[in-house]
Write a protein that binds this DNA or RNA. Sequence first.
DNA 1: GTGAAAGCGCTAACAA
DNA 2: TTGTTAGCGCTTTCAC
Lengths: 343, 343
Amino acid sequence: MQKKPITIKDLASMLGMSKSTVSRALRDQYDVNPETRKKVLELAQKLDFETNTLAASLRENRSYILGVIIPSFSIPFYSIALSGIHAAAAAAGYNIIVCQSDDSFENEQKNVNFLMKSRVDGILISLSRNTTSTEHLLRIAQRGVPVVMFNRVSQQNTIPRVFIDDYAGALCATRHLIEIGCRRLAHISGPSSLFLSQNRMKGFEEGLREAGLNVDPDMIVESDFTLESGKIAIQKILPYKPDALFCVCDAVAFGAMAIIKEKGLRIPEDISVAGFTNEPLSSIFSPSLTTMAQPIEEIGKAAVDLLFEHMHSLKNSHIRKDIVMSAGLIIRESTTNKTVIAQ
Amino acid sequence: MQKKPITIKDLASMLGMSKSTVSRALRDQYDVNPETRKKVLELAQKLDFETNTLAASLRENRSYILGVIIPSFSIPFYSIALSGIHAAAAAAGYNIIVCQSDDSFENEQKNVNFLMKSRVDGILISLSRNTTSTEHLLRIAQRGVPVVMFNRVSQQNTIPRVFIDDYAGALCATRHLIEIGCRRLAHISGPSSLFLSQNRMKGFEEGLREAGLNVDPDMIVESDFTLESGKIAIQKILPYKPDALFCVCDAVAFGAMAIIKEKGLRIPEDISVAGFTNEPLSSIFSPSLTTMAQPIEEIGKAAVDLLFEHMHSLKNSHIRKDIVMSAGLIIRESTTNKTVIAQ
DNA sequence: GTGAAAGCGCTAACAA
DNA sequence: TTGTTAGCGCTTTCAC
């Protein structure tokens, strides 16, 4: 059973002063006699007093808490992004509540409602795979709670966004594959409902077109970002004998590579493989994985910064709408150009 | 700027009834005229009313929120454990606030204080590497807020714990390495301050003793669970020519294997490698990694269950103290017994 | 520099 | 079944 915690009222009566004086002494923004403050702080320390933030938030009408909604804790990208978000929020005196949608739109709506009920001061969200509308977000934005989408953002840009230029990144990776001599390029895409997947797909297709290559629908298979889905997708593609594979993310590439090796094909000699994200393990996988590196922690930090801009903005000040970052090509063994190496 | 949200008072005045009736109608545990309830719910729906949980929690003296403290979001184990914790908590109508200590004792204490100030109903914690005392936890337990340690638990058992039998797991892995013919066994351990590391180390040592092998201190090097630290540790060990390596976790094993391969040594022919955890990638790493599989989500769920037991327990009821689970050996390529295979 | 008093939004006696 | 009232712990006018 929970014991009744000490309150400022307790402190006040023990010290023979009023609640208000104790309250003021506890924070350092008011004129309080140094003597008085000292006494208060000493007793508070001694009795392990802790301000009830529930009460303070209720009174102040702000909680110093940010809500974060992610598809899943288990996706490495979000683990890292959360570190960045947590750090940036903490630096500004904010704490975070993290919810996961499990890629369900219904859960995502529930998460939003929960965060609203909890009176968070702002919300960061990476959309679920099944989210097709952003009405639930517009609604809360209209209620005055700022929202920022990050990574998995929607196409419509009424709500500020922080994301990677996925189109350019995919184009870059595709050009690289073509430059090293590949001609039969395959792509394992992400869920087609996501703007992010669409853009990486478009970048891939543009890369092919640029080089005068055909886009073969049989060589494009959808995944759900998981290792397992990568394994399944590549099996559908292999019969068409690709000489290169561009994957929507590293995890999918890992799964695909496992199967490719299992079938006795060599990477990169028979098939070159490129991923997207640059997960920690991609540098030590065998072969190490060529990939488009994303500044993950920075994305998290940027999302928090942008949220603060919108939280503190006056009506007429100039604030950023979107922040677009770029991914950088890291060439590793999975796409090494054997001809070049031989020289 | 945040607009004033609708309150029950607003609803009451619009409907011409009292706050309490509205409050009662909104929850379904009171006798309220079905007609009345219907009207209230309809208006609430229409106006997007959302109970202010800050106020409700303050009044009810309970928040329906569990606090979770983990060393880092970026450790895969915790990503998965969080999924389990989140699901188990949600099933019981609880939400979670997650804090990371970044393996700093100071941060851990700050996290505890923050959660106490936020009036969470219970706390789940995996200790930071630098936590040597559990006084901060005993203090809050005494204040009536139940605490459960999971995974990284302390040796002292005043506080309920959920953990793996690390000693038995390590012993099992070590026996396996010896059974396949290895004689010069090395160990990359975790931070020696952690009970978990100590137990895995003891299990390793016992395995050697059982087989009449010496424990060579030069072949035991400490890591901090990261891939990088595994790379560094193995370099110190290689000069002593081990024929087997037992790592405190899979990430460390991945790092070590990368270096072993770089040096031109073969796995498992020259060195067999075993890990601990069974991370998703260990099955598709090259070579795939032999490891002690942990039921990670179940650990998270068990921790939540145990916390609820302590939260709801009457003084005299029988409640569990510790929950100990066991890890299971998964044999893969990194320790394949070549002699056997050749048959 | 300090105190008295009101009120944030909600729930729960107690009355009616 | 519904209303009245008090109060959770805090901050903040407004006096003094």
